[in-house]
Structure formats: C-alpha cells, structure tokens
Design a protein around this nucleic acid. Structure first.
Lengths: 167, 167
DNA sequence: AGCACTGTTCAATTTTGTTTGAACAAACGC
DNA sequence: GCGTTTGTTCAAACAAAATTGAACAGTGCT
C-alpha cells in the first residue's frame, strides 16, 4: 500500500518537509527521538495550533507516538496547550523563545544527571576511604576531588548559560 | 564458559567497577557509546597508562571496540598517547582537565552541528522566498529569523562556556 | 445505558546504533 | 622472507531504543 499520487490533502509540502527534517536533525543532537523533532517541527512552521490528530495524519505517525511525543514536549516546556474553543480536543502550539526551550531542557535533561552524579561521587568517596594502600588511596582521593570539581563547574555554568540564552 | 571464582588477575576490583559505571552513565548523557565510558573510566582510575590490550583484557571488550573507542577519545582530546619506552605498543592516559574535555566535545560534537545548521537555515530562507501567499511568506520569514537568532545565540554561548570551564 | 470521540498505555515489532570477531595491514626481529 | 606483535577495518550479530497499534479509560452527548 502506498500514497496516491496527489490525493492526500494532508501531505506535507516541500517547505514543511524541510523544516521537519531540520528539527529531526536538531533533536537528535540533543539525544531526543525523531518523533519529537517531527512534531515540534510541524508545530513550529504551522500558522495555527494543531491537534494530536492533525499531527498523526500529517506526519504519518501513530497516535501513540504523537501522544508520547507531546507529553515530552510539554514537560520540556516546548509546546503549550491551547483551548480549542467549543471543541473538545486540545490544540498545541510551540514555544519559540530560546530561553524557554533551553531552560526546559536544562531542567529536565541536565540537572537530574548532575544531581545523581553528586550522589554517585559521594558513594565513590566512601569506597575510596576503605582502600588500604596509602599511596593508592591518596591517588584515588585526588581523582574523586577532580570529579567533584567537574560537577561544581557544571553546576555553575548552567545558570550562566540560561542567562545568556535568555534575552 | 564462565569466569573462575577468583582466578582472573585482570578482573576489575569493586572500586574500579564503580568508577567505570559512573563514566558509562556519564557518557550516555553526552550521547556517546558505553564502551567510550568504560575505556575512559578505567584510564581515569588507573595509576599507570594502559595499552589497548590492557583495556581489552580488563574490560572484556573486543579489540575492535577498544580501537574505535580510543580513536574517538583521542579525537575528543580526552586521552593522550604515552610512549611506552622500549615497548612497541602505545599506552594511553586520560586528560583530566575539564577545559580540555569540554573543548574537545564542543569542537567535535557541537560546532559541526551549528555549522551545518547555518547551511540548512540558508536553504530554508531560499525556499521561503518562493512562497506565493504574502501572509504565509511573512510568517515564514519571521520563523526563519527566529532560527537564525537561535543559532547566533548558540554560537555566542560556546566561547563563554569554554571560558567558564577552563580555569 | 449505549455510542462516539479524544487521548493514554504498553507489549510486540521495527529501527537504529553498538559491539564483535575475523580478515587485513604495518612494523619489528630473526 | 617468515613469523610475531600491535592495531585497524568493516560486515554480521547483537542490544538498546523508538514506534506501532490494539486495548483501554475518560468524557460528553442522546
């Protein structure tokens, strides 16, 4: 089964395809799945908010993908819901301020890792104390301190990042 | 076939395992394969430089993985080669300055994407000019300009990032 | 209550990306 | 030259992650 030559009114036009491809590439760099890029891309280039069903039909993705993709984009603060007036279904529109996008990504994808990193390094420091050989222990202490320095730097950089992106 | 209870002198000790696991998690955040984390982790916690063969034996990874992993780590500036004296084989040691690590990652993994992004946006701007409907064209122009703004911000942030991480 | 519509969940499938291992190349010593 | 050691390459096998689609839940309408 394949698409009719020109029968599908939902087919993306060349420009839309180009934009969607742009965002698919973009989100891959961030380690996010392709469907996220497709959805955000189409919303980004759409002049009106789109419903979940619009995304399913125009991108040829499953309802499941669209639902999960929208959930993640909402959690990142990258899309917002719009009340569809009398309609029952909800419509979505993209957040386009870099500040918001970067902020959401940092909050949801980066900070949690820094936090869990801190915990793991503490445990590492514990393990290190049990080492018998003093020379080895001294070396390990240095390395653990190095890790702590890294994390501290990371923690300091994030707010600056947000500030720089937020104008 | 399985390991003998305590016969393998190359087995990682618990601390080494903990550190390797830490880096395996760490590199996953950066979108790099697990073997990269294993290799860097073991080098990081080793008091002496290690050879490719050391990595293969102690991490139970294939020569292929070790070779490819080391190549990427070298390209990132995350490991350096050390002359093994009279030995023929080369030994590797980790770079541990955050400045160097971040710099390599930015140079190899981020900048190229910013560059190709610029190109793609130019093409997008071209496509946009062909749109007939003036209202639609105006909207698209705004969106493309938004993308350009994002990339400019990204370009400006990187040097600041490097500077902040480089002390 | 029954039906239609919107959206979610999750096990099965598909896709993508990583790892392996065997073949190969290069460098050295005999 | 021939065997040995060190390391690379890459197609095939494998593992991990994303996507699908069918079952389900919730809501509103008649």
């Amino acid at each position: 089964m394949h698409d009719l030559p020109s029968g599908d009114p939902y087919e993306l036009d060349p420009l839309e395809r180009q934009v969607v491809a742009f965002f698919v590439d973009g989100v891959r760099v961030l380690g996010l799945p392709r469907s996220i890029g497709e959805i955000y891309g189409l919303l980004f280039i759409s002049q009106t908010p789109l419903s979940l069903d619009d995304l399913v039909r125009r991108l040829h993705i499953s309802k499941g993908s669209a639902s999960q993709g929208l959930r993640m984009l909402k959690s990142l603060g990258a899309v917002g819901e719009v009340e569809g007036g009398a309609e029952r279904r909800t419509y979505y529109q993209p957040a386009i301020e870099l500040k918001r996008l970067a902020g959401g990504f940092i909050r949801e994808q980066i900070r949690p890792h820094l936090e869990s990193g801190k915990t793991k390094i503490s445990r590492l420091a514990e393990t290190t104390r049990d080492i018998d050989d003093p020379t080895r222990r001294k070396f390990l202490k240095e390395r653990v301190e190095r890790l702590e320095t890294w994390l501290r730097s990371g923690g300091k950089v994030l707010p600056v990042l947000q500030k720089l992106l937020g104008q």
